[in-house]
Nucleic acid binder design. Sequence first.
DNA 1: AAGCCGGGGAT
DNA 2: ATCCCAGGCTT
Length: 352
Amino acid sequence: MPNDFTKLLLEWNRSGNTRQMPWKGEKDPYKIWLSEVVLQQTRVEQGLAYYEKFIERFPTITDLAMAPDELVFKTWEGLGYYSRCRNLLATARTIAFEKSGVFPDSYEDILKLKGVGPYTAAAIASFAFGQPQAVLDGNVFRVLSRYFGICTPIDTPEGKKLFSQLAKALLYQDDPAVYNQAIMDFGAVVCKPQQPACETCILRGDCQAFQLGCIDRIPVKSRSILRRNRFFYYFILSWKGGYYIRQRKESDIWQNLHEWVLLERSEILEADAAGFKKELKILLDTAVGEVREISVVQKQQLTHQTISGRFIRVELQTPLPENSGYRLVRREELSAIAFPRYITRYLETHPL
DNA sequence: AAGCCGGGGAT
DNA sequence: ATCCCAGGCTT
């Protein structure tokens, strides 16, 4: 027998939830998994086009598993958190080639997949296989903390444990999939982070945060993130119609994506052609050509870093040495290679 | 347990 | 500017 919260939530879902999404009611675990990974820390509106594009290009998990890495990364380009893409591909290959294309159907086995944590495992288990696993995402944290007036920080082990138990206890056993979908829809549409629709909310009579007038202070988070400033100077070196790039490998931002010749500094550098030419010469330990253009300062905000810098176009007079770490690619090849947004944004206004 | 990993939209 | 998003991995 459902409790009051679950009853009210299901009532809202029946009568007041008009939210539509392509994966709603979907039972194919591949599509569920794909949609969930795309949507990790990503708004539905932002992820939607990527989901459609993946399904179109890779209709089955085997299609995805057999695809070249670069095509998959190119499809993911611009969505961010690129480890999701790397793990997506690894898991597709594991399932396609080691599990005969059969998606695991128990929560425990789903949880073992790369890139699949407690939330995604619960989502797949409930949506694709109807299992009684309660999802716990940003929406659920917010809805439950407000409704029950819980001030325990949600980003601590204690908070995670508390909300996990609560979510489990509230789950509608007769239809876990509908319940999970409903609570996330409710959090996204009604119990929003800012300016929630309390005036029309059918749960407000029992909502502790609303009754106490502290909606805007719940959920509570313990730590605040601090950002560091980094300064990237990208040299776009051209040689005989080609351009030098490399793939980022270090454990740093934008892993697996490509970039131009990078000079990183701890401060902003002026648009000084002679200065940049000198820096480049030191960086590559080789003669360099003419500096054609230096861009204005471009800035991008990441979660833990603020990237600022310039793009410097240089026409080489000799090719780079073989051991430079960079490879020469033709201009036409660049459209198949994945770059971080910081670079594609520049290219939008400064085509090669 | 804390820190790190993108990009975009809303406020 | 700040917050947050259908979180998960690494250290």
